[in-house]
Each structure stands twice: as structure tokens, then as C-alpha cells.
Write a protein that binds this DNA or RNA. Structure first.
Length: 506
RNA sequence: GGAGCGUUGGUCAAGGGGUUAAGACGCAUCCCUUUCACGGAUGAAUCACGGGUUCGAUUCCCGUACGCUCUACCA
């Protein structure tokens, strides 16, 4: 335990979209590793061949890249402990299972899935445990020669851990403190499956040992199986080589009870996955935070604050600040409900504080998806600067700034029609002529000119501002009118006035 | 059913024996702004409940309730 170089791992099962809770687990791993000058490893736990999903692994790495949480060692980066895919490590696990059998900590079991299912049907809460294992077909109940014979005949078997009847195993969790379990309450979990693949229980322990993991972070849902892992460590590699455990609180659904699921996002209209995920089987795409218009800085920041804070009240943190401030001691014990409104607030904050150039390329994509092609980046930057405080998500820029690039498609004349009159018509007609002659085109002179003219027409500027806005913008929103006029230029300004005037007289 | 974990405003949460129980999101009202937004101000919690311990408990202890997680040849 003393001063070993920190090595942590994220061990996803590549079976579908990457859940926000998964990304938070990655984040905490990453922060801890970076803070301690350690190594962050991604290990793919693909031991269940029946759940193989095409593209799921690549998708996980894409998500990590978008978040900026790049692993130091992984199947794609390689590393000194390769391979990092458990399916490619299949041969390694069996010897450890055999070792356990030799020491009497595990046994062969020949019960078929059908037999077990029958037992579960017969007995209300059937568990394969210290009470029932002697009524089952395994190397504990069969004569040695029968076992040998079955093995020789290639009879399918699994290897199960032999849980002690009544021992106390304690887990010193970094977040929860001492947690005790009675071993008699757990069942004899399968360690090695009939197909020769390890289950999670065996694989984590073996790989954490082989990869010299020092700290193991995972979701709280794993806490009940911790005693099995701890026992395995004790039997195989010794408790003093075991990583320190930290079981992270769950992220809960915003309404009702239970942990946040993909379905909650669909039901309530917000993303749950980091990026869009298309299920290859059904072709259905589930929306991701990225595609919804989140900045990775905001997404990561928001996730960090779900279950952790630095105690100062500060909420906006860059990744570097998080690396500096992060501490396991300040991780909460209780689960946190996910709040999409708050998530959007984080994104809004990051939109304000990052230079617009930083995310302009992404914004551009939303514009082009809306049929607006942007040719001048400098113009785009100025526009973004002007409207960014109204944007929570990146696509908001299209809505908030589309009129800077094309004439408004819908001019809300209803907003001004009721109070429209001949005097105003005259005013704007003259305004057009006036603007045409202007040599200096900036917000200030435009405003002065506008107000002088209003006075000359004996009209209140206030009555004219909204019509002017509607003409330029199309609706009741956007930055100061004269800033807009200044930016879109003389020609567009005049053209829009003219167009609206025509609409109003039609 | 069993085991484990958890419980401070609607949400995220600070605090941790004596406080007017921070702050943020959201909401409402107001100010600023001749639009929207930003910004500012104000408002809203008997700290799940019941017992202790104590001069004093939101804070410590014990129960209860409630919630969650797990209880597969899935992770």
C-alpha cells in the first residue's frame, strides 16, 4: 500500500451507449490519477460473448476523447500490461480458478442452466450457497473419480467460489468507511463460465492484480459483491496487494425513484449518454450530450459536481482546477438526482467564459444543418459574441443569430400591426432614405440618427424601436437593435425595412 | 424475503453540539434594460420521525420509517 505509483482503471462493458454515470466514474478515476501523477487505464470487460455489440467499444473511446479524458493505457493506446480486452485474456483466468480449487476455495459445478432454473422455480428464493451446494451436482458432492470422468468427457462445468459459512469480511471503503459483510449471505458465485470465460468477479480481481491497480472506483451497485472480490484477493494475491476501494454514489432519475436510465432521458427529453448512440440491432439512435449541444468542458464540470464539491461553494471548474482540487474524502455517500436545468446552466456558463473561437466550428455545423452557410469566421465570432449570453446549448445560436446571416424568414408583423399607423410608415420610409446617405455606419451614429428623426417626426423612440427590431430580427428577441443594424450592414438593414413595410401595407 | 448503503429547501449542496442553517439551479416578484437575455435585489427549510446523551442537538448514540442497490454461467 505504501507509495506505490497510482494506477486506476475504468472497466466498461461494451454493450451500448455510455451512460453519464459511467463518464463520471471515468472522470473521478482520471482526476485521481492525474492528481497523483498516476496512470489511468481503460480495460474492456467483454467477457459476456452473448452481449457483444458491434461498435460499442469504439464508441466508448470516442466519448472519452470528446470529454478529453484520454487513457494512458488501453486497447487502443496499448501499454505494458496488454492486452486490455478481457476477451483476449481468456487463457489467463482459468489457472487462477484452478488454483482456488486446489486450495479448496472453489469447486467444479456441473448443474446445467436448466437444472438451476428448475430449482429456482421449486424453491422460492433459491441460492447456490453453503446450504444448498450439497444438494447439487459438483465436485463437493460427487466422488473424485466421477468428477474426473466428467471432466474427461468434456461435460460442461463452471467453477464456483466456495463461500465460507460464517465469516465476516470487511471492506474499508474510501468513501463509506468500514463496511462489514457476512460471507454466509452471499451465494457461491460462478467464477469461470462453461465457455471458459471468467465472470466479472474473477476477472476484476485477476486483472486488477496483474495490472497493478492501486485504487478501484466503481458504482455503488457493486458494494454488495465486494466481499466476494475481497475474499478472492485474500485467497489469490493477499489483502495487502489489494487496491483501495471507493464505491461511488449513484446518479438518480430527476423524478420518482431509482437510478437514472436511458429511458428516463427519452421520457423527460434530455440526453443520458455522452454522445449519440445508434443501436446496431434496431437502428435506433439515442441522443447524446455532445449532439444536444453541450461543450465537453461543461459536461465534465457538471458531472464532477454530481456527488462532489470542494466545500468552497465554487461550481465552475476547469479540468485542471478539478485535478488540483479533487479529493475522495469530499465525495458524497448519498445518490444525487440528475437535474437537466442545472446541466444547461453549466453549459451556459461555459459558453460565456470560453472564447467563442473555441467552439465556433461546432456552432457552424448547426448553422449549416439549418441551411445557413457561413463564409466569414470573423463575422461569425462577432455575432457569437453578441448573442452568446442568450444561449444555453450550442444550437441556440442558430435561433438567436440566424438573422445575422439571412433575412428573417418569418417576420412577426402581428407584434406591431395593431399600433401601426401612417406616421410610422412615413418615419421608416424616410429612415430608409436617410440610412442610404449615411457615411458612418456604427451603432452609435445609427442610434443618434434614429432618435433625431423620431423627434423630428414627433414620435417617441420607444414606439419605433420594436417595429425596427421586428424588421431586422423578425421577432421580439436579440441584442440591441442598433448593434444588429451595425453588424448586418446598410444594405441588409434597408432591405429588411423595405420588406416589412411592404408586408404591413399589403 | 435477506443483506448492504443512504436521508439538510423542488433539485445540487455547505456546515457539523450553541449559526439569522452558506451558496448554486429552478421558481415567483421587483430593479436595470424602449425586445429577449445578462446583471442586481427580495421571497420561500420546524435539517425524515421517535427516543436518548447533554445546560444545549440539524450535528453524537439507539431505534423506526422511507428510499435505493444487490440478491444471473450480466456487468
Amino acid at each position: 500500500m505504501e507509495n506505490k505509483p497510482v494506477r486506476v482503471r475504468f472497466a466498461p462493458s461494451p454493450t451500448g451507449g455510455l451512460h453519464l454515470g459511467g463518464v463520471r466514474t471515468v472522470l473521478f478515476n482520471y482526476l485521481f490519477a492525474k492528481q497523483h501523477g498516476g496512470t489511468f487505464i481503460v480495460r474492456i470487460e467483454d467477457t459476456d460473448q452473448t452481449r457483444f455489440v458491434e461498435g460499442a467499444e469504439q464508441y466508448i473511446f470516442d466519448c472519452l476523447q470528446w470529454c478529453g479524458l484520454t487513457p494512458d493505457e488501453s486497447p487502443v493506446n496499448g501499454g505494458p500490461f496488454a492486452p486490455y480486452r478481457q476477451s483476449e485474456r481468456k487463457a489467463i483466468y482459468k489457472q487462477y480458478a484452478l488454483q482456488l480449487i486446489e486450495k479448496g476455495y472453489a469447486y467444479y459445478a456441473f448443474d446445467t442452466p436448466e437444472e438451476l432454473e428448475a430449482k429456482r422455480k421449486q424453491f422460492p428464493n433459491f441460492q447456490y450457497n453453503h446450504q444448498t451446494r450439497y444438494q447439487c451436482s459438483n465436485s463437493l458432492t460427487l466422488a473424485p473419480e466421477q468428477v474426473l470422468e466428467k471432466l474427461a468427457n468434456n461435460t460442461p462445468y463452471v467453477i464456483r467460489i466456495k463461500m465460507p459459512e460464517n465469516e465476516t469480511v470487511t471492506c474499508n471503503d474510501l468513501i463509506r468507511g468500514k463496511v462489514e459483510f457476512n460471507t454466509g449471505l452471499s451465494d457461491d458465485k460462478v467464477l469461470l463460465k462453461a465457455d471458459g470465460m471468467p465472470t466479472y468477479h474473477l476477472a476484476v480481481v485477476v486483472d486488477d492484480y496483474l495490472m497493478q491497480i492501486t485504487h478501484a472506483f466503481r458504482g455503488e451497485e457493486w458494494l454488495p459483491s465486494a466481499p466476494i472480490h475481497i475474499l478472492l484477493w485474500q485467497y489469490l494475491f493477499g489483502l495487502n496487494n489489494m487496491p483501495q476501494w471507493a464505491h461511488l454514489p449513484l446518479i438518480l432519475k430527476p423524478d420518482g425513484n431509482g437510478k437514472l436510465s436511458k429511458r428516463d432521458g427519452e421520457r423527460l427529453g434530455f440526453p443520458v449518454f455522452a454522445m449519440d448512440w445508434t443501436d446496431p440491432a434496431t437502428g435506433n439512435t439515442t441522443k447524446g450530450f455532445k449532439e444536444r449541444g453541450f461543450l465537453p468542458e461543461a459536461f465534465v464540470n457538471m458531472l464532477a459536481m454530481l456527488g462532489w464539491n470542494d466545500g468552497s461553494g465554487q461550481e465552475i471548474f476547469s479540468i485542471d482546477a478539478l485535478i488540483e482540487k479533487f479529493s475522495i474524502e469530499r465525495i458524497h455517500k448519498g445518490g444525487a438526482r440528475f437535474d437537466y436545468e442545472k446541466a444547461k446552466w453549466f453549459n451556459h456558463s461555459w459558453i460565456q467564459q470560453l472564447p467563442v473561437q473555441h467552439y465556433a466550428a461546432e456552432v457552424k455545423k448547426y448553422f449549416s444543418a439549418a441551411g445557413i452557410t457561413i463564409t466569414h469566421n470573423d463575422y461569425l465570432y462577432r455575432v457569437m459574441e453578441l448573442v452568446k449570453e442568450r444561449c444555453h446549448l450550442l444550437p441556440d445560436f442558430v435561433e438567436q443569430a440566424g438573422f445575422f446571416f439571412q433575412h428573417p424568414t418569418n417576420v412577426d408583423t402581428n407584434a406591431i400591426a395593431a399600433k401601426w399607423n401612417e406616421a410610422k410608415q412615413q418615419f421608416f420610409a424616410e429612415l430608409m432614405r436617410n440610412l442610404e446617405l449615411m457615411s458612418i455606419w456604427n451603432a452609435e451614429s445609427l442610434e443618434n440618427d434614429f432618435k433625431e428623426m423620431a423627434a423630428a417626426h414627433q414620435l417617441k423612440p420607444g414606439e419605433l424601436m420594436l417595429p425596427f427590431r421586428i424588421m431586422l430580427v423578425g421577432g421580439k428577441f436579440g441584442p440591441h437593435v442598433f448593434d444588429i443594424a451595425a453588424l448586418i450592414g446598410k444594405e441588409a438593414t434597408i432591405q429588411r425595412i423595405k420588406h416589412t413595410l411592404q408586408l404591413l401595407t399589403a
